[in-house]
Write a protein that binds this DNA or RNA. Structure first.
Length: 350
DNA sequence: ACAGACCCTCAGCA
DNA sequence: ATGCTGAGGGTCT
């Protein structure tokens, strides 16, 4: 089997490996003085889920500020790390195409010995389709929700045709939480850079694919260490450096990742108020986390833009209001919740 | 309820 | 070319 390397040479080895598998092997080979380091990855075949653009627009949903981790590659594919794999996706009118790239071996030894041992692992049946459907929440009928929202609100009806297929992702709450601590008083470009720095500094290098390094999102533990604040300061996080370290430490004290995941099972208001006990998380960020990773689809994050839109089109008596006080925040939230119903947060995103 | 302060960056403009 | 200002998916005191 011929394997392309990052140095654009071809390496021959392991021709029997995976001969009966439908997976494709990719090997990146770096010479380091005498030895070689092999980064071996397996790319799945392209898989497909029938899905209309009206049910899911990748271009909007992956790039509208709910996740900061998806990047469009020159090929037009979206690339992102999810559940410890690199995913590559695109879509056409009728379907979503995706493939998965996963590291198999990273060793300084000759790969010929370790590869067969990984063979069984590769063949392990992983339900990628289920993971995609879960992440995009494809069991939720978005077209039907759009119809419902259009009936409820003429303004939505007018605007919605330009923003078809806007779907909330079901994100990992750890990534979601720390990314949105970064979002306060900030712009998307800078937030994206900060999330990248978090991953490069405290995440694990997953693999390098076509000259792009991909990292996992850091664990809560790794962000909870005391040194993190000063390090993030030097990386330009500003006052958010302290929030990140302190929130991580507090979550660990509360029970770590399980404590966060458990917020999916409690009521929306309980989840929100629990999140707001963490430093750097106020009402808006808490609502973002509720909506984007904790299944509380009724949550309405009221940011400065939602405030402006609400003043101009929905809650006239706020037209002279200068700032978003708690009272104003709750009033705007409640308005959109009663207008759009259970999936109000999804409608708000459109 | 409401200012200020908080880190940093980047348009927009003089 | 430099320098100033305001705002950017807020939060805390």
């Amino acid at each position: 089997m011929t394997i392309k390397t990052s140095r654009r040479k071809n390496v021959e080895f392991g021709s029997k490996f995976l001969e009966s598998s439908q997976h494709q092997l990719i090997c990146l080979c770096h010479t380091r003085n005498i030895g070689c380091i092999f980064y071996v990855m397996a790319a799945s075949p392209i898989m497909r889920i029938p899905c209309k653009v009206a049910e899911l627009s990748l271009d909007i949903s992956l790039n509208c500020g709910q996740s900061f981790r998806w990047k469009k590659r020159p090929s037009g594919e979206w690339a992102g790390v999810l559940a410890g794999y690199l995913w590559l996706m695109n879509q056409d009118e009728a379907g979503l195409n995706y493939r998965v790239v996963t590291p198999v071996v990273q060793s300084e030894a000759s790969p010929s010995e370790s590869l067969p041992a990984k063979k069984a692992e590769m063949k392990e049946c992983i339900d990628y389709e289920h993971m995609v459907k879960d992440y995009f929440q494809l069991d939720i009928d978005l077209e039907s929700l759009y119809r419902q929202w259009s009936l409820a609100d003429a303004n939505f009806d007018k605007v919605a045709k330009n923003f078809v297929g806007v779907r909330m992702l079901k994100q990992d709450p750890v990534e979601n939480l720390f990314a949105f601590i970064c979002s306060s008083n900030n712009n998307i470009q800078r937030i994206t850079g900060m999330v990248e720095k978090l991953c490069e500094t405290y995440g694990n290098h997953l693999l390098t694919y076509e000259d792009m390094a991909y990292y996992t999102f850091p664990s809560i533990e790794s962000l909870a260490e005391e040194k993190v604040e000063s390090k993030l300061r030097t990386l330009g996080f500003g006052y958010r450096a302290k929030f990140i370290q302190q929130s991580a430490a507090k979550i660990m004290k509360n029970g770590g990742r399980d404590w966060l995941l458990n917020l999916r099972t409690v009521s929306y208001l309980e989840a929100k108020s629990s999140l707001m006990t963490l430093p750097g998380i106020g009402a808006k960020v808490a609502d973002c986390i509720c909506l984007m990773s904790l299944n509380h689809s009724v949550a309405i994050p009221v940011d400065t833009h939602v405030f402006q839109i609400a003043k101009a089109n929905y809650v006239p008596h706020l037209s002279q209001t200068k700032s978003v006080t708690d009272k104003v925040y709750n009033e705007i939230s409640a308005h959109f919740q009663s207008l759009f119903g259970t999936y109000a947060g999804w409608a708000h995103s459109v």
